[in-house]
Amino acid sequence: MAVDFPSDGWIDEWKAQLNDNDEYAEKASDWGVGWNGDFIFTIEVDDEAKEKFPELVGDNDKVQYFIGLEGGECTGAYQVDDLEDVDYGFEIIGPYENWKKLANGEIGAIDSLMSGQFELNGDMQRVMQYSDGAVEMVETATDIETNFVY
């Protein structure tokens, strides 16, 4: 059964699949150990999304999710209304269409950062150091049967 993206159900499914992925656990075993490896994923949305899905977007121009990552495990995944309420080490920002391409496997994690399709707030050098884990994290997302909400 397909899960809507973005939604709490999708983020919950991603967390479950990450925690059930031995390859991710191995490749990301050092990620976030002794430092904050948690992410905020900021999905920029347009007026069409605001009209079609007001319960998801409200008056905002973005939807944000916290993804807790440490030692090859996803420690938490949920929607965030106010970034002041969470402690995170990285934020990745991009338009809905690019998140859709990423979740479909049409663009890669590292390539999309390097090409400017996404903006990273945080230590790019650290992301590159652990790029195998980042790639496996995104590849895990492509395994989710996804219904894109627009």
Rank of each mutant, 00 (worst) to 15 (best):
G32A: 07
V63C: 13
V127S: 14
E119Q: 15
D22V: 02
T42W: 07
A141Y: 08
G94W: 03
D12V: 00
Q79D: 11
F53H: 14
I11G: 00
D8N: 15
S7L: 06
K52I: 05
G108Q: 07
G122W: 04
A16L: 06
P95F: 05
Q79M: 15
L56F: 13
P54W: 02
L18T: 07
D38I: 05
N60A: 13
L83D: 01
S112C: 11
D12I: 00
D87E: 13
Y88A: 08
A2P: 15
R126P: 10
S131T: 06
T75N: 06
E97T: 14
D20A: 15
I43C: 08
N19V: 10
Q125G: 09
G68I: 07
V57G: 03
I40D: 00
K52F: 02
L83V: 13
E136M: 08
E23C: 02
G108V: 03
L69K: 08
A134V: 12
K52M: 07
S29P: 01
L83K: 08
I67H: 00
D123V: 09
T140R: 08
P6N: 10
M124E: 14
F118G: 10
V135K: 06
N98M: 13
E84D: 13
G89S: 03
Q17W: 01
D87K: 12
F90W: 05
Q17M: 10
A16I: 03
V33H: 11
A16W: 02
C74A: 15
E136Q: 15
D132P: 11
V149P: 05
T75F: 06
E145V: 14
E73M: 10
E23A: 07
G72K: 04
F66Q: 08
V63I: 14
E73F: 13
N21M: 07
Y130G: 12
L56S: 06
A141L: 04
W35I: 13
R126Q: 15
F118K: 08
A134L: 13
P95T: 10
Q117H: 09
N104I: 04
F39P: 00
K52V: 01
S112V: 07
G32C: 08
E91Q: 14
I67C: 01
E119C: 02
S131A: 10
A28G: 05
G58E: 05
S112I: 09
G94A: 09
V3L: 09
E51A: 12
Y78M: 09
G9E: 11
N147G: 01
Y65S: 03
F39C: 01
S131H: 12
I92M: 14
Y65I: 06
